[in-house]
């Protein structure tokens, strides 16, 4: 996984609440048995004009189709971003499109934990901070420094943010999520050995 230490880019505003995973990637766009190649389906419902169920031309009004945001690598949004279905495709589609960070007032629980595991930084900020970034940055690039936990805006001002320690560690080191747990393999084995004696009924026999 590519480590996330500092990132500089343009943030596209999606200034509404409850952007759910169906909106981020409609299920009809999730056609692959793979995590890769889903970027084209990102926000497909609003990004394209549909002819029947087929994607047609781009919808010129949609933010990611506007010239200044075509290469956006960050999103700014309201409350509860990524709510709804637990599909990780939403995060894969964002990552595949090239989004590295999402700044929102709050996130769907599963969505948020999926972000770090896929190298995406999810930052929770107050409404005032989101509005300030929207107003100051507009389509100009700015920097997120995860190491220092600081956002540096184009006007020279900055603001601090917090992210869960575990997410930060994984992102900074580009750590694989499973490897992180396997550091504790001995604990897992001990737990299971003891648990088998306490709750034998919970363990299925072979060939059941």
């Amino acid at each position: 996984m590519k480590p996330f230490v500092r990132h500089r880019g343009v943030a596209a505003p999606v200034p509404i609440d409850n952007v759910d995973t169906d909106q981020i990637i409609p299920s009809r766009e999730m056609k692959r048995v793979s995590k890769l190649g889903l970027g084209g389906g990102l926000f497909a419902g609003s990004r394209y004009v549909y002819e029947g169920t087929e994607r047609g031309a781009e919808n010129p009004d949609f933010v990611l189709n506007r010239p200044e945001y075509r290469n956006a690598s960050m999103l700014l949004s309201g409350r509860n971003f990524g709510c709804g279905s637990s599909r990780e495709h939403a995060v894969w589609a964002l990552a595949d499109f090239g989004i590295r960070a999402i700044l929102a007032q709050s996130f769907g629980r599963i969505f948020r934990s999926n972000c770090a595991r896929n190298g995406l930084l999810a930052i929770e900020l107050g409404q005032a901070d989101i509005e300030r970034i929207l107003a100051t940055a507009q389509a100009a690039p700015f920097e997120i420094d995860l190491e220092a936990q600081v956002i540096r805006l184009p006007d020279g001002s900055s603001l601090n943010f917090d992210v869960p320690k575990g997410d930060r560690e994984m992102l900074l080191n580009g750590l694989d999520y499973v490897d992180y747990a396997l550091q504790y393999e001995a604990d897992i084995e001990r737990h299971i050995a003891k648990d088998r004696e306490l709750r034998p009924w919970a363990y299925l026999a072979p060939q059941n």
């Binding site: 969505f111 934990s113 595991r117 999520y177 499973v178 396997l182 897992i188």
Partner: peptide, 19 residues
Amino acid sequence: WGIGSSDCEHVLATETLRT
């Protein structure tokens, strides 16, 4: 426990989840 895909890989590989 409803999980995402990376959690799913985690639980398949380790029999645990982290939360």
